[in-house]
Amino acid sequence: MSTDSTTSTIPSDAPPSDEIVLRAEKVGIRYRHFKHRDGWVLSGLNFDLKKGEVLGVVGRNGAGKSSLLRALAGITTADAGRIYRHPMSRASLLTINMGFIPHLPSRENAILMGMLLGLRRREIEDRYPDIMAFCNLDIPEDQKVGTFSSGMRARLALGIALAAAPEVILIDELLGVGDGQFRETSAAAIRNLIRTDRSVVLVTHNNKTLGNISDRVLWLEQGRQQELGPAKEVLEHYDEYLKLEGARPNGVTS
């Protein structure tokens, strides 16, 4: 459900490869009401996402990371270039603000979010026990989601997304919340996804997590692709840049 016609599937004139689930070609995203950079929050992005790959994305706030994930999820369209998606792949975006209804308990929220992520009601109901087993939430069945901590909501969001089992999971800062145990559980869950050939695009300011999980890292700076390469190498360069610039990851907000 997250995917649709505006984000193209990989067309016949693209290099045929079952190994590539997403391809960005000269992608630019523009928010016309933004004054900064004439509204271009992203420009000139080129990369492939391979089947079973974890692509980390780093960059200071305002670099365009969340905008990139929205475009990859098909929520927005590219204003320049094209995003190609493999015809058999669905991409779902996970954030801490999963759109839960605070006055409802986890079951109804899980069913609703599962349906929003493309499952039929019956499918998500069948998978609900697995979601709760993953979330490991020791709470009464009727406890409303509005009373959950951010870590509990993150567990529920990740559990629902894993149950929806899209081919591409786009994770925006979800692993930065919750306790150490949740971070370990979620990192293990992502590794399991890779074993099932799922692909992940992961945005987090936690470079240690990125270094441990990612195959490659894309570094964005002011909406442009600064570097793309092996995780360890790019993260080293990014850290050096931050030290040189005296810039902190949490700088400007877009």
Binding site: M1, S2, L93, G99, L116, L117
Partner: peptide, 11 residues
């Protein structure tokens, strides 16, 4: 009013 949901899921 559905801003947060619209920014998260395509519908």
């Amino acid at each position: 009013e559905a801003r947060s949901m619209i920014l998260q899921v395509y519908l």
